[in-house]
């Protein structure tokens, strides 16, 4: 398996740990770290996985500039079923545009949603939902909220907490093997059951997570709390 990590120098909010975790889970696989001034590997090759994580708002603009020439190629790879994971505000760039204080930033337009960003109002929250029969947990910490336009390609239904925005009952986006979620945690580490299933699917064989029992114990403790009706979830 070859995984391309896009612009990891920009990653924030613990998202680099998703990469380190995948390396631990798949120690024999090749991970290509693409720099902002590099031509992405996916433009001329077909990686098995593409990942991108959280970044600052100015770096979002740089990433949009860097990827805009390759929108058709990205669409082609999505259609071919290449696995892709976008976490936190890396999801923003997949939509049509970001609105911030009267300014509009055009994004890649791979999905039909827009983002409204308020730099003086940071949204923090927790989310619980179910995907493929697996409970998904995670945290949100972001300036922008996504608003689907005609898009209904959801990642999962939210059972507690907030979805894409306070009025949206679902979280993230999902098309073929592309998954985009605003959840951090890091997402892959705090969702061991999902990660095990997802990586096994990519590998085509069962994957064992490092210290799997300990990962599941921490996950179950969080799940218990998130499901506790006495625990308020934003």
């Amino acid at each position: 398996m070859t995984a391309e990590i896009l612009f990891s120098d920009y990653f924030l909010f613990g998202d680099m740990a998703n990469v380190e975790y995948m390396k631990k889970c798949l120690p024999d696989r090749e991970f290509i770290l693409t720099d902002i001034h590099d031509k992405p590997y996916f433009t001329e090759h077909e990686p098995d996985l593409i990942y991108m994580g959280a970044m600052s708002e100015s770096n979002q603009v740089r990433v949009i500039e860097a990827l805009t020439p390759y929108v058709d190629r990205l669409n082609e790879l999505i259609d071919k079923g290449v696995h892709m994971l976008f976490t936190a505000n890396a999801c923003d760039i997949l939509g049509t545009s970001i609105f911030d204080s009267g300014e509009k930033t055009e994004c890649l337009g791979l999905f039909d949603f827009h983002v409204v960003r308020k730099m003086l109002k940071r949204f923090n929250g927790m989310t619980l939902g179910t995907y493929n029969g697996i409970d998904i947990v995670g945290y949100k910490s972001q300036f922008g909220l996504a608003f689907p336009d005609s898009c209904d390609e959801k990642f999962f239904d939210v059972t507690r907490g907030v979805g894409l925005n306070p009025d949206c009952p679902w979280e993230g986006f999902h098309r073929k093997n592309l998954i985009a979620t605003y959840l951090i945690g890091p997402f892959l580490i705090i969702n061991p059951l999902f990660t095990k299933q997802w990586l096994s699917e990519i590998e085509g064989k069962p994957v064992v997570l490092p210290f799997e029992d300990a990962a599941v114990k921490a996950y179950q403790a969080r799940l218990r709390d998130f499901k506790d009706p006495d625990r308020k979830i934003i």
């Binding site: 909010f13 613990g14 945290y139 910490s141 945690g185 580490i189 934003i234």
Partner: peptide, 8 residues
């Protein structure tokens, strides 16, 4: 609210 992402 909570968040353990900073542990990483």
């Amino acid at each position: 609210c909570e968040n353990v992402a900073w542990y990483y």
